[in-house]
């Protein structure tokens, strides 16, 4: 049961993030919501590759007594997570710069500050 905690955390993070994106009116909070969802997904990927007592998957640095590859954590999800984090930074930077521009034009961070269009 204790091993499910990371997965429960993932579900909670994604739910909180989605809530923030859907119901918050402040643009910065929407950006934060996206980042929370992203953390949840990244945590999920990392949890997939985790092995109890596993070591870093480097063959030349194998401590004695550890069998390869059974004693290692999976490297692929870590590579995926790294890529996803890098992409996430770029996306966040761009989103925040849009928010800055939005603020310059509207002098407000409220998403309802502009008229609604049909």
């Amino acid at each position: 049961m204790i091993w499910n905690i990371p997965f429960i955390t993932v579900a909670l993070l994604i739910a909180i993030g989605l809530y923030a994106v859907m119901f918050k009116r402040n643009l910065i909070k929407i950006a934060i919501g996206i980042t929370i969802i992203e953390s949840g997904v990244n945590l999920f990927l990392i949890t997939l590759g985790y092995r109890e007592g596993g070591i870093a998957p480097i063959y030349t640095n194998l401590p004695p007594g550890v069998k390869a590859p059974e004693g290692m954590v999976l490297p692929v999800p870590q590579a995926l997570t790294l890529t996803s984090i890098v992409i996430g930074v770029a996306v966040l930077a761009l989103t925040l710069s849009f928010i800055m521009k939005f603020y310059e034009h509207n002098k407000s961070l409220d998403s309802h500050s502009r008229r609604l269009k049909g």
């Binding site: 989103t95 849009f98 939005f102």
Partner: peptide
């Protein structure tokens, strides 16, 4: 900027 922000949020999610 508004259009780009909406698209960003949607495509990111």
């Amino acid at each position: 900027v508004e259009g780009a922000f909406k698209y960003m949020v949607i495509s990111n999610i």
